[in-house]
Design a protein around this nucleic acid. Structure first.
Lengths: 350, 350
DNA sequence: TTGAAAGCGCTAACAG
DNA sequence: CTGTTAGCGCTTTCAA
């Protein structure tokens, strides 16, 4: 088809070519180009010059073999096409590009109802120096395997034992959102959560719900199981959850959706049904995705790309042996009040 | 900090260990494990067995050095945290995982107002066997450089000279959306486009606009420059574009937003202003992002993940020398009619 | 400050 | 069908 394979792979200059052209040994070229000490200034400049002329670039494969370091890191995500993961990857990629690391992404697809195991034997073995684990509860055995293979691992989300990690306090998220609603005067507050994950050990929904319950308890509001429904962490699921809630004999006056995306589905459904927000019903989400701003959704904000950038920096430091001492960093969250929450409509008591 | 670096990198079994344990030469181990012919069945099974016991896994770095192939591909994206790019990456990643390739992602950030040049000298040199270029107009010199370095390149979006590529017919997209509106009886149709890219050579907005203009011309509707506004390909931009349109003396009865995301901003603004959709105004988008479905947005659908999967398959074929003959595949698009478009309100002519 | 040479772990002729 | 051996291109002691 294309002409791409017709031209030979353009044999490139090797370190020997540079050595010959600069009249030095390959060892000297290696030292000079890597900025090591013990190279005469004049020698170095000559080598650099020659290397430039020959358009020389060290072969990473050879370097990897000789040094045992790949200068690559992997980011392990449950999915690649979600807003959250894309943000994380963006953060990681930026740091990698800066630090001269390759970022290879590995998605943990589920196969026959089970998560694909990371036997390390596969995509990880000797391919990368470190891993960024994103919101995946690794089996202890998997983690051990990785570490025993010399991989440095950092994590976003759950605190992997022995690994530096960052994340937000998801219980606090639930509490913050619920308290906001409580503060507005709501008592009948529903939760649109997610119970679909049986594969990745995704604890976030559970924790946010804990915060919700804690806030309710603290306020002396009795829990009502009917008010806790599943939204599958999808727009569609949020809409369906909304229907379920509105079909209740005593529907809620406020909804806490544990993700913007589900809040979005609920809002849309509300509009279709002619339910005014926040007049008839308040809604608050979590994440502060771009769409939240334009929809005026009140939500709990977190800076996801920064999570990625942060752990990537840690990882790079770790790999450079610049020891640092952070074990876990709880990233800040903030409530962004917009226009989907208000005091409940005053009920005229007859 | 963590205990990760305390244990030695767990020296792993090499091919020699396996050879010794199986009482054969390393060459035989290599052949046996790679499934090459000319290995006695009994020998092969013994080698496989021993390799398993030793938990042996060939070192990719050594293999790369010996064969000259990295078994990795790069995906070159303008950004990593956009819906479109995330979908593409998802498609590419799935194929890579299946075919045993690493996917490394490289974002083309802009620096001091200019796109970071891909001198190949950087992140690409000898690191990957091939590249998936996503919606980036590479300089001819950059492309030549890549090909001369032996890289196979395929592209999504613009048809790179000499490279297999896929994409949609963006002129047809513009025409399809506009004709839909025209068919409904609209004559005053606005376009929310994007003129912000000065860096990546992004031709999509221009082409969709061409389709829009062609459809209007074909229908004998005169173009009105006032109806063509910029939406910056963001939700916010779409909202602002909407304001601009509504401020016109003779506002449109329908809007074609060249991306769902901008349509979304426009819809939100319409709601805030009490403009009924589709009663007062029709809106059609492009992409069919998940959010489009729940909002009931009429839009031009394309399967973006499949674009990624498709070119990734081509690339893998190319790298395996399974020559195939596709030069360019125009992926299908379909109009998904939902609830944001309808016939224009009948104007009672006094 | 520099050079020689021994690997790193694998693949790929080339013999046998 | 199997073994020997020469690289692949770089880093890194160890000497000089």
């Amino acid at each position: 088809m294309t002409q791409q394979r017709s031209s030979p792979p353009a044999s490139r200059a090797t370190i020997e070519d540079v050595a010959a052209a600069a009249n030095v040994s390959v060892a000297t070229v290696s030292r000079a180009l890597r900025g090591l000490p013990n190279v005469a200034a004049s020698t170095r400049s000559r080598v650099v010059e020659v290397a430039g002329q020959l358009n020389y670039q060290a072969d990473p494969a050879a370097r990897r073999l000789a040094t045992g370091r790949s200068h690559a890191i992997a980011v392990l995500v449950p999915f690649v096409n979600t807003w959250y993961c894309a943000e994380v990857m963006a953060g990681v990629e930026a740091v990698c590009a800066e630090a001269g690391y390759d970022m290879v992404v590995i998605a943990l697809r589920a196969e026959n109802g089970d998560r694909r195991p990371i036997d390390g034997t596969e995509a990880l073995h000797r391919r990368v120096d470190g891993i960024v684990v994103v919101d995946v509860a690794l089996e202890p055995a998997e983690l051990d395997e990785m570490i025993s293979r010399g991989l440095s691992v950092v994590s976003i989300g759950p605190p992997l034992p022995g690994c530096a990690s960052t994340g937000i306090d998801d219980v606090a998220v639930g509490r913050m959102a619920t308290e906001h609603l409580l503060g507005l005067g709501h008592h009948r507050i529903a939760l649109i959560g997610d119970t679909t994950d049986t594969v990745f050990g995704f604890m976030v929904p559970t924790m946010r719900q804990q915060g919700y319950e804690a806030a309710l308890n603290a306020a002396g509001v009795e829990l009502d199981d009917e008010l806790i429904v599943d939204g599958s962490f999808t727009v569609q699921g949020g809409a369906e959850a909304f229907d379920q809630l509105m079909a209740l004999d005593d529907p809620p006056t406020a909804i806490f959706a544990i993700g913007d995306i589900m809040a979005l589905g609920a809002m849309q459904r509300a509009r279709e049904l002619g339910i005014d927000i926040p007049g008839d019903l308040s809604i608050v989400g979590v994440d502060d995705q771009p769409v939240a701003e334009v929809l005026g959704l009140t939500t709990v904000h977190q800076d996801v790309a920064e999570h990625g950038a942060r752990v990537a920096r840690w990882l790079v430091d770790l790999l450079r042996d610049d020891d640092h001492s952070v074990e876990r960093f709880i990233a800040p969250i903030t409530l962004v009040e917009r226009t989907t929450t208000a005091a409940p409509a005053t009920v005229v008591v007859g």
